[in-house]
């Protein structure tokens, strides 16, 4: 029984991590069909923002939950203005340009901070479940994932800004005809996506370690989760990270972390073969 609870917690933590690292990419992909391959580096920059401000004496929670998203959101604004804006509608070119940005960020950060692993230990100690111990930070991540997805859903569903965002997502020309500026909506959406990525980077930093190349570990996972999820950004990300996170964690538990990841990728391939439009191309089509 205790083992079952411990494994279930582990699975939930895996799902939550996948959800957290994918959400920023999903918002950007869902809103404007841009696949941001610099997403991994947004995570990395968020982690650096958190660690640097924590070292400068800021409260660790403040550094993770406030400074990281703000800093990366600002970078997101700059990236959108300078690069992405010129390439809307050209999906492949955006992918290539953001890949270039990703390499550039890795290079720049390596030059400034060096190629060494920094890190901070997970706050919140550990929790006992019967004879097993689970990290309190894992529980916090599960909570954070729930808050994030509920927050994005609530903003999209209930606020005027969310209404404008959904309208622009469905039909940019019509939105423009009704007096909304799609390019402003896109700029804001990109900044929000970047901020979410920065937050995600700060949240995963305690257990991933902070290196300039840390993004490359996560970009593929996030990319695959979002694409497997399909067009609906929240339902897709939620269902895909639920499925893939479960497979990866159980696979890891049964064999090794590497084989767990291989199992997850294999499931993603089979899934895309069966559902070429992603999960929400077939199920939950009308959801957000």
């Amino acid at each position: 029984m205790d083992l079952a609870v411990a494994v279930a917690l582990q699975v939930l933590t895996g799902i939550a991590t996948l959800l957290i690292i994918s959400l920023g990419l999903a918002v950007i992909f869902g809103m404007m069909r841009v696949i941001n391959l610099a997403h991994g580096e947004f995570l990395m920059l968020g982690a650096y923002a958190a660690i640097l401000s924590a070292r400068a004496g800021l409260n660790i929670w403040l550094a993770m939950l406030v400074v990281a998203p703000l800093a990366v959101g600002a970078i997101g604004v700059a990236v959108e203005r300078l690069v992405i804006r010129r390439l809307y509608g050209r999906m492949l070119d955006t992918m290539l340009a953001t890949w270039g940005l990703s390499l550039g960020f890795i290079g720049a950060v390596t030059m400034i901070f060096g190629n060494t692993v920094a890190g901070f230990s997970a706050p919140l100690g550990s929790v006992a479940i019967g004879g097993y111990r689970s990290s309190g930070y894992g529980l916090f991540l599960i909570g954070a994932a729930c808050v994030l997805i509920a927050g994005v859903w609530a903003v999209l569903r209930f606020t005027p800004a969310g209404l404008i965002a959904r309208g622009t997502m469905q039909n940019p020309e019509m939105a423009a005809a009704l007096g909304v500026s799609p390019s402003r909506v896109y700029a804001i959406a990109f900044a929000v996506g970047a901020a979410l990525s920065g937050l995600a980077g700060a949240l995963i930093a305690p257990f991933s370690g902070v290196v300039p190349t840390m993004g490359t570990v996560y970009i593929a996972k996030a990319f695959i989760t979002v694409i497997t999820g399909g067009a609906a950004m929240l339902a897709g990300t939620l269902s895909a990270s639920g499925l893939l996170g479960t497979v990866a964690t159980l696979g890891t538990f049964a064999t090794t972390p590497v084989l767990g990841e291989v199992a997850m990728l294999a499931v993603a391939i089979v899934l895309l073969r069966l559902l070429p439009e992603g999960i929400t191309g077939r199920f939950f089509r009308r959801s957000l």
């Binding site: 690069v83 010129r86 390439l87 070119d93 290539l96 340009a97 890949w99 270039g100 940005l101 990703s102 390499l103 550039g104 960020f105 890795i106 290079g107 720049a108 390596t110 030059m111």
Partner: peptide, 13 residues
């Protein structure tokens, strides 16, 4: 990496 990335962005744009 910085140079390669800059070249790629410049090439796309």
């Amino acid at each position: 990496s910085l140079i390669l990335g800059a070249v790629l962005v410049a090439a796309v744009l």
